[in-house]
Amino acid sequence: MSIQPPAEDLSTDVVATAAEEVGATKIEGRTPWQLVRMRLRRDKTTMFILVVVLFGLIMGITAPILSRLGVLDPFSGNRELIDVTGGGLPLGRFGGVSWAHPLGVVPGTGQDVLSRLVLGVTYSLGIAVSATLLAIGLGTFVGVVAGYSRGWLDFWLSRLIDLTLTFPQTLMLIALSPIVVRLLTDRFGVPEGDIANGMYVVGVLGLFGWPIFARVIRSQVLSIREREFIEAARSLGANNRRIYAKELLPNLWAPILIYSTLLMPQFISAEAALSYLGVGIKPPTPTLGNVLRDSIQYAESDFIFFFFPALFIAILVLSLNLLGDGLRDALDPKADR
């Protein structure tokens, strides 16, 4: 199956209406931002989700600092906390839960589960954010160029989009991994290990993740460029670059924002799935996928360890998805959900 879920319900006209709405609000004398913020503030669920997501982000940003300071210790083993004769299961109840180790310890090594998960958020979010930036950047660029230029360039870029969509993404990620990682390290001097593997995952997720978004942007641009304010700018003698930068891009931020929020959870799930298949950043580096891959073995013998890594991923994915929905509602009140 493809790692990405089926095309999201962001049909082009929905986005178009979002932009239209934004345009229409100008009459009321409020900036679109003000309006969106107002709507968001009224949506309590989304505000709550936003807090969760921000909390996750802060967690991700501070984890490396905290682990350098020694507050989090994701790597040190605690042999005295595991039962060496019983398959290395944590001693004590509930997977070795204690004040020192609020989510217990890893069977076999006695590493602190919470530390590994918190640092895992850093890695997984890092991968997801980078891949999203790459995909959105590429998608915006191709979409804007195709939509604005029309003609042969548009034709070929659209074919490029079609072409990229035909490749089986998950399979390509696995199949190209040995070749491309070797290429990165041997030809481009990228340091081996986490950096090369991480770059590979980000690169391939991004390179296969942009086309659907490029399509959205393209049709968005197609509809905007026919509108009066572009006409006006053109008749006033604005050159193409000015039109791109000043007139087009500001009208694309709604789909960009929505899509970024919806792509990120896909990439977080993708990282986990790839870890399961043995591609990407390798253990003992604790990406959420790596921790989960170990923990799923313990479904029956250590439920705490089994459950929490999956829960971390689920919360991240769920809250980002809901945030994306909330943003869509705020940007596009006509869309009904």
């Binding site: 040190s76 083993g77 076999g108 290990g193 043995g278 390798k282 003992p284 891959r293 170990d294």
Partner: peptide, 30 residues
Amino acid sequence: GGDPTLDKAMGVIKEGWDKAGFKTSLDPLT
């Protein structure tokens, strides 16, 4: 690599070596 249990065991080796003054990087390959 490929076996999460072995990955953990290698982490233990790394820990011991690092304590002795090495800087170990693990390289699990398929």
